[in-house]
Design a protein around this nucleic acid. Structure first.
Length: 647
RNA sequence: CGGGGUGUGGCGCAGCUUGGUAGCGCAUUGCGUUUGGGACGCAAGGGUCGCAGGUUCAAAUCCUGUCACCCCGACCA
């Protein structure tokens, strides 16, 4: 959000992004410093006694996942409304550092930063159809004149229009623009704290090229930048093929952080193929040889009373029909025909029947992705009534797709024709099936695909299972879950066409610009880092995004302890190390230790009882390592550890 | 949208079955004692018990309605 950026920017130079919290008993020390030193110190020393922070001893009742629980407990964020969070000083520092890394890498690709409003008028989104296409997930509102506005869920339209406003020649391309902006989506069920919110911060970038080759280059540049960004953030990622879905376009990949609590399921093969489960391409088996097909027995209809389900059908088949090879029938021998209703964006309802092996379910997500922009609904009794040839529980191919006689040819029926019929890729020509005979209580046995029936095409929407063959032929697929932290799209011309973004080419001819769009969930990535690095004691930030580098603890009330801690904190700050100094006097050592572990700065410097023996302690949060050393050696040692951790 | 659950000081919860005018822990304030692993004593502040209606002499508690939130699923760049 703008206010976030504004509040940090004056103090942001390079990647530090530190807000001043220089107050308290040592303020007088400032007076002896020059302006440059003063500024530098102000950026790197925070006092716990003055910090706006309250840590919670108990987990908040509404938080389930670790990142959510700990970010709230450690006083980094507060819930404001469902899926909407406020940022407190420490959280804001982490956010600023994550943003700074994203910004640096975007700038390094030559992308230029701009900033749009989050509150936008309806018209541009009307032009691209997204005012309606986005559905209830779009936050809509009206001004006092009852004009429609929206809180932007993403900004393709605005970037496209801005470029249209100002550019008109191929000479000015390629161009990539980006922003770091608050986005709004009215999720029906926000969850997991920052991971799925209704307000979140996203970096969105858009490339503008004259042709496909240019787009490919821009896409690759962004893809490479994403790899650098997530590496710098310390996040593992898997790049998976994705469906472009609502965004349209050709090529699309997601960056997933593999994680149990992730909401995206993806597959991996031993050979390196990776895809979102929605985008998995199921390889078709080889067609059965003609000679083999020729030898197959003719199909025949048999009575199978009371077999509305695949399970009951298999039981009856085994009881009444011998399988040619003598083995028992299984659900995989059946061809299940599932009826769904597709609703087009214009509202037209059409039935679709999907034929797939009886041991497979239709995966709703894959189906949605495959038929986009149509919506999938369960077929209602009214829908089914438009096609009386469909007998629930006994639907078979002979009345479907190209096999079904077009209805209405005699003028008595206005229906268009046979119900569209699409087959799972596993149902290749020459395979034989038990399937519905379109008559209650009857199934047909040995119906051969290609010989006895055909379909309108193939649809790859069956559930994907662990162990399914990978499309790259390298072996069985494995399934895993992940958090989507980035998504890149080769959009093509969808938005440029809708909004008429054209430039003149070398020949003075107007050509439509080709676009890409590239998003990173900034707040979601922050949560993913927390999720990955935390433990049962609290957060544990990597140096590059930690709110500060070293947590200095004064663990004792002796004058010597306080003076030494104070002095070391100041020395560290002067050496450019960002310090959080726990100078609270009435707080016991145990509380300070627990808070330090909860807050999760990468290193702690403990000044306490060891001081009597001439030592202080340096702790590494992530590993739990502790070492004792002379106070004089502490600053150098910490700088060494920081350098090693930043490398 | 379907299923489950919860609304009681800032946070976490008990009390509700069996109605009698609100309690515990943490946090906060003051004083004192403590100080290397979430201390102790004494004192103090803070709550229209989600909201509305009803039953009753009396409602956090019973009844009706309603709203909100959380979790699982569905859905979702």
């Amino acid at each position: 959000m703008r206010s976030v950026r504004k509040s940090t920017r004056p103090w942001t130079s390079g990647s530090s992004g530190i807000v001043p919290v220089w107050q308290g008993s040592s303020a007088h020390a400032r007076e002896n410093l020059g302006p440059l030193q003063r500024d530098r110190l102000a950026r790197v020393l925070m006092r716990m006694s003055k910090l706006f922070l309250r840590t919670l001893r108990e987990d908040p009742a509404d938080a389930e996942v670790a990142s959510h629980r700990l970010l709230v407990r450690a006083g980094y964020i507060r819930r404001t409304a469902p899926g909407i969070y406020s940022w407190l000083p420490l959280g804001l520092k982490v956010l600023a550092k994550v943003e700074a890394i994203v910004r640096e890498e975007m700038d390094a690709t030559g992308a230029q930063e701009v900033h749009f409003p989050a509150l936008l008028p309806r018209e541009p989104y009307e032009a691209t159809g997204r005012w309606t296409e986005y559905g209830p997930n779009l936050f809509r509102l009206q001004d006092r004149k009852e004009a429609d506005y929206l809180l932007a869920p993403t900004h393709e339209e605005m970037f496209t229009l801005l470029v249209k406003d100002l550019y008109s020649s191929y000479k000015e391309l390629p161009l990539t623009l980006y922003q770091i902006q608050t986005k709004y989506r009215d999720e029906s069920r926000p969850r997991a704290g920052l991971i799925r919110g209704r307000e979140f911060i996203m970096k969105d970038a858009y490339s503008f090229d004259i042709d496909e080759a240019g787009l490919a280059a821009s896409y690759d540049a962004q893809r490479a930048a994403y790899e650098r960004i997530f590496t710098r953030l310390g996040l593992d990622y898997v790049i998976v093929s994705a469906m472009s879905g609502a965004m349209g376009g050709s090529r699309s990949e997601e960056f997933l952080f593999p994680c149990e609590i992730g909401e995206d399921t993806f597959v991996r093969s031993p050979g390196g193929y990776a895809a979102n489960v929605e985008a998995v391409h199921t390889p078709s088996p080889e067609p059965v040889e003609a000679a083999v097909v020729a030898g197959l027995p003719a199909a025949y209809v048999a009575d199978t009373p009371d077999t509305p389900t695949i399970e009951s059908l298999v039981d009856v088949a085994n009881a009444t029909q011998a399988k040619p090879d003598g083995v028992l029938w299984t659900s995989a021998d059946t061809l299940k025909n599932v009826v769904v209703t597709l609703v087009s964006p214009a509202g037209a309802r059409d039935l679709l029947v999907i034929g797939l092996p009886g041991d497979r379910q239709v995966d709703a997500k894959r189906l949605e992705a495959a038929v986009f922009p149509a919506e999938v609904e369960q077929a209602t009794a009214k829908d089914l009534a438009t096609h009386p040839e469909l007998v629930a529980g006994y639907i078979g191919p002979s009345v479907l797709g190209p096999n079904g006689a077009p209805r209405g040819s005699d003028g008595t029926d206005s229906a268009q024709g046979a119900v569209r019929y699409l087959l799972d890729p596993r149902v290749v020509d020459g395979t034989a099936w038990i399937t519905g005979a379109n008559e209650s209580g009857k199934h047909v046995f040995g119906l051969v695909a290609g010989r006895d029936f055909t379909a309108d095409g193939v649809i790859d929407v069956a559930e994907v299972r662990v162990g399914d063959p990978a499309p790259d032929g390298s072996g069985p697929l494995e399934l895993a879950r992940g958090i989507e932290i980035g998504h890149i799209f080769a959009l093509g011309q969808k938005f440029a066409k809708a909004l008429d973004l054209k430039v003149l080419d070398q020949n003075g001819k107007a050509v439509t610009v080709t676009m890409g769009s590239y998003g990173i969930g900034v707040t979601r990535a922050l949560a993913a880092i927390a999720e990955k690095t935390c433990d049962d004691k609290g957060l544990s930030w990597p140096v590059q995004v930690a709110p500060a580098h070293v947590h200095v603890l004064a663990a004792g009330k002796d004058e010597a302890v306080l003076t030494t801690a104070e002095g070391l904190a100041a020395q560290l700050a002067a050496a450019g190390v960002e310090v959080l100094y726990d100078d609270r006097v009435k707080v016991s050592a145990g509380v300070k230790f627990a808070d330090a572990e909860l807050l999760g700065l990468p290193f702690a410097l403990v000044v306490g009882r060891g001081l009597a023996d001439g030592v202080v302690e340096v702790r590494t949060r992530a590993s739990g390592d502790r070492e004792e050393l002379a106070p004089d050696a502490a600053v150098a040692r910490l700088r060494e550890l920081l350098a090693a951790a930043s490398a």
